[in-house]
């Protein structure tokens, strides 16, 4: 404890922050809590539908590609890369907050740049993954005919496999798969995107010396809370869509 707290302080009688934390940080926490419920509701809805059907797409078959690797079967590899990118950009973010506590402007700038680069790298990965999902064709047996489908919000080529002309071929799966996948990863990607915008704004304000004039780098902390939350949500998206 760097500062002693008076035992006589009337925390709830006004004039003091009840939780001894700035208004901005409390409200950021409450916003993030409400956002957690939004993401939670989406993921639980997805889980409910997935539990209610007999067959669901196997993520190891759906997400097995890697850029420039052709048709090599590499389950989990690309999404692991995305996970580590986001964890690492969380580390550079917390290092930026750390430099802010020390009032070290150059340090904050350096780590904010790295955090922004991490966010852009993640968004690039997601753009590639979506493109691959939507444009990658897979044989599907539809009304006795073989068709080639990408994965979209209206088409799911990852249904039950059946025997057709001596070979196993997939049938259409529940269309909810694409809706949930693109809906939830898209909502998360939008958070990453807005997080990058916030971080760029903070970098500009740091460079302009606004926080030095203000005497503290608390805005970096609040942007950091949002950024870590984005990483936190990804941990659960990673679990629900790719691992299980």
């Amino acid at each position: 404890m760097s500062t002693t707290i008076s035992t006589n302080t009337k925390w709830w009688n006004g004039g003091r922050s009840p939780f001894n934390i700035s208004y901005g940080k409390v409200m950021m926490w409450y916003f993030l809590m409400s956002d957690a419920f939004t993401f939670g509701a989406f993921l639980i809805s997805y889980g409910t539908i997935r539990f209610s059907v007999n067959h669901w797409a196997d993520p190891n078959h759906v997400f097995n590609a890697f850029p420039l690797a052709g048709h090599a079967n590499l389950p989990l590899v690309f999404v692991s890369l995305m996970t580590f990118i986001l964890i690492f950009s969380s580390v550079t973010m917390v290092l930026a907050v750390h430099e802010g506590h020390k009032m070290n402007r150059k340090g904050v700038e350096k780590y904010m740049v790295l955090t922004i680069l991490g966010g852009l790298a993640f968004l690039g990965c997601q753009a590639w993954e979506w493109t691959h999902m939507i444009t990658g064709d897979h044989a599907v047996l539809v009304n006795g005919q073989i068709e080639y489908w990408g994965t979209t919000v209206t088409r799911n080529p990852w249904g039950v496999e059946v025997m057709h002309n001596g070979a196993m071929v997939a049938t259409p799966g529940p269309i909810a798969f694409g809706g949930y996948f693109f809906g939830i990863t898209g909502f998360h990607g939008f958070h990453v995107f807005s997080g990058v915008i916030i971080n760029v704004t903070m970098l500009i304000k740091t460079r302009l010396g606004h926080f030095d004039q203000r005497g503290h780098y608390e805005m970096i902390e609040k942007a950091g809370l949002y950024w870590h939350f984005v990483d936190l949500v990804w941990v659960f998206v990673f679990l629900c869509f790719y691992l299980v």
Binding site: M1, S2, R16, M103, E218
Partner: peptide
Amino acid sequence: MSSQISSPEITHAPEHA
């Protein structure tokens, strides 16, 4: 202590390593 207090009503700042 290295950290700063952002507003007067805050008397508590966690010790930052």
